[in-house]
Computed example of a mutant assay.
Amino acid sequence: MTVVMVEDLDPSSADAGVAAHYGDPMREQRTLATAVGLVDRSNRDVIAVPGEERASWLHTLTTQHLSDLSAFSGSELLVLSPHGHVEQHAYVTEDGETAWLDTEPGAGAGLLKYLEMMRFFTKVEPRDATSEIAVLSLVGPGAADLFPELENPRVGAVPGPKFAAGSVPAHATSQYAVRGFEGGLARRVPLGVDLLVPRAAKTSVIEKLAVPPAGLLAYEAIRVEHRIPRLGWETDHRTIPAEADFIASAVHLDKGCYRGQETVARVHHLGRPPRRLVLLHFDGIATDQPPAHGTPVTLDGREVGFVGTAVRHHELGLVALAVLKRNVTAGELRVGESVVSVDAS
């Protein structure tokens, strides 16, 4: 089997260390879209948070409602700056003894540093567990069939502006079912099932599952299609949660005070975040090559946003997630020499 690593295509990529594809990225995409494939995402950083006060502690530090975090449950959370800008995003998976936080490659050190700074006298012991735990993702409609006991993900509706206090249920806004699996954990998520397995057992787990492999290029194409934002790709130093569509999955709008809450509340109740996450379609005339992350999006020659993740999709063609100024509604949008349009669906 041909294996092309991410660093073979881009030596500077933050995603180095895992397979980009196994010889046919488009076939791998179709597998993820119609059946099930296994994507090695073991380059993700993992932070372990054991300790009897971990749930209440994470509840006070992050955007998510986690005070009732129970064994074998999962969710998502953000860490914000004092001004409400997104600094960290992580999935949280609880096994009854430890809360496991998996985040983007290279982001774990910053998350761990923040958690260690905020320990004070709390009974928690956060540590870097990247060398212990590998993340594998089963993606596609067939993933749920491999773990039928895991309930479908539940993501609550975002309340409208000026909602009544107490009207948002007092639990995590995204709820992902979890169970033990091969010495680790299986977590049901919108794209399928994520596996957090002992790194030493990664190869044996892959062999036991006997699921066709798919590379990160295929995974990213499916993620873009479903408009799922990624820290560091659809975010920059100015991003607030409402701009990158983190509100539904990672932010509880009616919980106790946390760092950056004032900005989140003000923007939500006014209903006017400065920017928005969109899906762009390229005309495919000027080029069929995905533009680099951060490439400006222009309107009549004026910069109005940036490209986050651009991919070649097996059905949609060349598309990208991008962050645009909210007031951009008409005119000729371009990325480089390519004319692009905003997906209205």
Rank of each mutant, 00 (worst) to 15 (best):
G51F: 08
K255D: 01
V211H: 11
R302L: 03
S73K: 12
H313G: 02
V92D: 02
K202E: 13
L9H: 12
L324Y: 00
V211A: 08
R302Q: 14
T309H: 07
P25F: 15
R41L: 14
K113S: 15
T63D: 01
K123C: 00
G180R: 15
L316E: 10
M118G: 06
L299D: 04
E262L: 09
I47L: 10
D283F: 10
I228F: 07
S56F: 13
H21T: 03
A218V: 06
P161F: 02
A90K: 09
T235G: 01
Q88W: 06
A109T: 14
E151H: 14
V18W: 07
A218F: 11
L112G: 04
E76L: 07
P11E: 11
D300L: 07
G37I: 04
I222Y: 06
V18D: 00
M1R: 15
G232I: 07
K162V: 02
S12W: 03
G51H: 05
T329H: 13
F246R: 14
E76C: 07
E151C: 07
A107I: 02
L253Q: 02
P274N: 09
L279E: 05
T263V: 15
L195Y: 08
W57S: 04
M118W: 09
V319H: 06
V6S: 07
H171P: 00
T309K: 15
V18F: 05
A214F: 09
Y258E: 06
A165Y: 08
A144W: 11
L32E: 02
S12E: 15
Y219D: 06
L209D: 11
T31I: 15
S67M: 13
A143T: 11
P190E: 10
V86W: 08
E87I: 14
V135M: 13
L32K: 12
L316M: 09
T34I: 01
M26D: 10
